[in-house]
Structure formats: structure tokens, C-alpha cells
Write a protein that binds this DNA or RNA. Structure first.
Lengths: 202, 202
DNA sequence: CCGATACGCAACGGTCCCGTTTCGTAAATA
DNA sequence: TATTTACGAAACGGGACCGTTGCGTATCGG
């Protein structure tokens, strides 16, 4: 008996290039980030951009959708750390993370895909939602529920409605903002007006 | 001098078929409504669906974008009549119109196009915004300003922020609602919670 | 060194769509 | 009737990608 091989015995032959794999995924994200829709994305364009043969792509992914799913999965989703001092501060942190992400072309286009190509690519959307949307949704839900329990929020508030108010308002700004960046204090202003409401405070 | 011809003298030859024109536009809207993006929309598919030769399309429109622009322009935008009794009622009317439109596949897909293909088709988006978005935006703006003036809304309210709150919350619901229809009283609930805010009322 | 596998590259046949042209027919005016 | 234009259908040459294959080279284990 000799020294153990690594847990998984490497098959004979030249190993696959990790560099090529990364280049392919980077090229995919680049093209998507430049505003290309999934349906317009071509394997040949990805291969060309990545400096790679088509063979190298087809050897790893069976179809375009699988590739895009893997590419989107590499977009890390580091949720902002929440201070936990006040519900208002935590909500501002969550919304400000949305604002910062909306400035990155890659995140922007991914959001577009998730929102408008959901019908055509259900698997893709499902995986993206599970990875990127759900954690944020649950984080916000936890903060709101904490606020209700602590008396910082209205005890009669419907949690889903509260999430729609906060997230929807931010989404609206990212979509229809006049071309430029969003105001740095946007998250704070949104949270304050959502909490106070638009009716006059007596 | 003889009897006057119709104001515009009809040129000799067979006149263009209005029926074909309508069929082409209907086919275009159908295909878009079935979830097809503008870039995937092909003239051949439109011609086939409309039961028309490609020639008949190219004779009328120079390119796909012109056709889509004309097709979208036929989607009427009848703003809801506002009772004017209270700002709350008028806001509910406006938001409920959004809810009803979001149930129509054609309107849904048009919204998708406007939101996610805006970069690729600026002319199309510009015209669509001018025709469909701006009138609604201005109607809501007028209601909010009236509310501020009458004391029904907070005098310190930023009008654009108020519009983002109301429209964004509705948009969020239409996008992420669990597959089915939206609750019939959604508009009313949204307006009430936006007005009251989510903080506890003392 | 040898066999095995991956690599980039180029070429393949096939499909879809492009925008144009041709053809025989239909519908209007003069 | 003669002329003019529009119509649907079909075919064209051309381009973009598809997914596959063959080629010569590179890189691994044995």
C-alpha cells in the first residue's frame, strides 16, 4: 500500500483549465452587463470575448442557460451587516445596499433579466431568486418583524406590504432616476418618508 | 371645373389594405404579448402570423423599430376619470388603473420592454414614455399637489418621493405577486399604508 | 516516451432571418 | 379597356449562430 492519492483520483490526461473557465464566465457577465439580453447572447460571442474555442464552452455546459445560471451564481451576494441598533438604521442599510448595487452595470442587468425574462427562462429566474432575492427579502422581513415586536413599527403593519413599500420605492428610483446616480442619502429619505407616511402628522 | 375630389387626391392604382395594416399591428402586439422581446421579434414571424407577405410590411415600415413604435402607439391610454372628491379616492383610482392594466398581457409586456430594453431602443422608449408614462405621471403629480395644497397631504412632502412611494409599491406588487391576480382592494390598501406610514401612530 | 485528455482554431452542414426581387393576380383610376 | 399600384407567395444571396468534427499542439499520469 502506497501513499494515498488525493480524495478524488484525477483522471488521466490534461486537466481542464481553470483560467479558461473563469474567462468564459467573465465574458458572459461582461456581455450581459453591456445590456445584452439572454436571448441575444451567443456562444460564439462569449468564446470570442473570452479568447477561447467554442469547444471549451460546449465541453463544460450543455446549453446557454446552464452557462448563464453558473455565471450569475458567481455574483456574490454579501448582505450588508446590520448594526441592530435601531430598525430605522437597519432599513437604511438594506436600502442603501440596493442603491449601491444599482450602480453596478452587472447587477443592474441581472435585475432586468430577472424582471423581464422571467417567463422565458424559469430555471434561470428560479435559481437567481433563490440565490440573490430571497436572502435579502428575508433579511428585510426579519428587520420589520423585529420593529413590530419592539414597537418601532406599527403593530398592525402587514409585513409584506411594508417590504413592498420600501423595496418598491427604491426600485422605482433606480429605474426612473434621471440618468445619473442616485442621491447618496436616498435610502435615508425613503425610510423616513415610508415610516412617517405622506399624510400630515397631526 | 368638375366636382371636387376628396381633399387628398387618391393616387391611381389599388389602395393599400387597411385590413392588412391592422392585422400586422395586431400580430406584432400578439407576439410581444406572448413574452417575445423586441430583439427576438422577426418580420417573418409577424408576416406569417398576420397572413401577409413580407412585402406588405416593408412597404409601410422601414424597419422593425418603426413598426413596434406604431404598434405600441395604438395601445390606448385612457386615464381613469378622477372623482375629485378626496385625494385618497383619486390616488386609489390611479393605482387601481395600474393594477387592472398589469393584468393584461399586452400592457405587462410593454412595461417590461420599457423597463429592460430602454438602453437598446431609445427612440421606442422615448415615444412610449411620452405617450403612456408621462400622462399618468402628471395626473398623479397633480393629485398630490392638490393634496398638499388642501392639507390632505403633508405640506413638507417631496412630490417626486410621493410618486415613487405610490407607483413603486404598486410596481413591486405587480412584479413579485405570487403568480396570480392582485387582490382587488390592493390599491386601497397601498394608498392607506402610504398615507399613514409604517411607524406607529401615537 | 506513451496514451489520454484539453486546448485554440478552422471548417462543416444546417437553420433562421434579413432585405430584395420576381411573379401572377386583385383592385383602384382614367 | 389600359394603366397603375398593392397584394400574397416564393425564391434569392447573404449573414449570424448553431452544435459538431478534425487538426495540430499542450499538458497531464504512468
Amino acid at each position: 500500500m502506497t501513499i494515498q492519492e488525493p480524495a478524488v483520483a484525477r483522471p488521466a490526461g490534461r486537466p481542464r483549465s481553470e483560467k479558461a473557465e473563469k474567462a468564459i464566465i467573465e465574458a458572459t457577465l461582461d456581455l450581459l452587463g453591456e445590456g445584452m439580453g439572454v436571448s441575444e447572447l451567443s456562444i460564439e460571442a462569449i468564446a470570442s470575448r473570452a479568447g477561447v474555442g467554442k469547444t471549451t464552452i460546449y465541453r463544460r455546459w450543455a446549453n446557454k442557460e446552464d452557462l448563464v445560471v453558473d455565471a450569475l451564481a458567481t455574483l456574490k451576494a454579501p448582505l450588508p451587516e446590520l448594526s441592530g441598533t435601531s430598525v430605522r438604521d437597519d432599513l437604511i442599510s438594506l436600502l442603501d445596499a440596493m442603491r449601491r448595487e444599482s450602480a453596478q452595470p452587472r447587477s443592474r442587468c441581472v435585475m432586468n433579466i430577472a424582471m423581464s425574462e422571467a417567463d422565458r427562462y424559469p430555471r434561470l429566474t428560479e435559481r437567481f431568486v433563490k440565490r440573490a432575492i430571497t436572502p435579502r427579502r428575508e433579511a428585510m422581513r426579519a428587520v420589520i418583524e423585529r420593529g413590530i415586536a419592539s414597537g418601532e413599527l406599527n403593530p398592525d403593519l402587514d409585513v409584506d406590504m411594508g417590504m413592498a413599500l420600501l423595496s418598491g420605492t427604491m426600485l422605482w428610483h433606480t429605474k426612473w432616476a434621471p440618468e445619473g446616480e442616485l442621491a447618496p442619502d436616498l435610502a435615508e429619505r425613503v425610510v423616513d418618508v415610508v415610516m412617517a407616511g405622506i399624510a400630515p402628522r397631526p
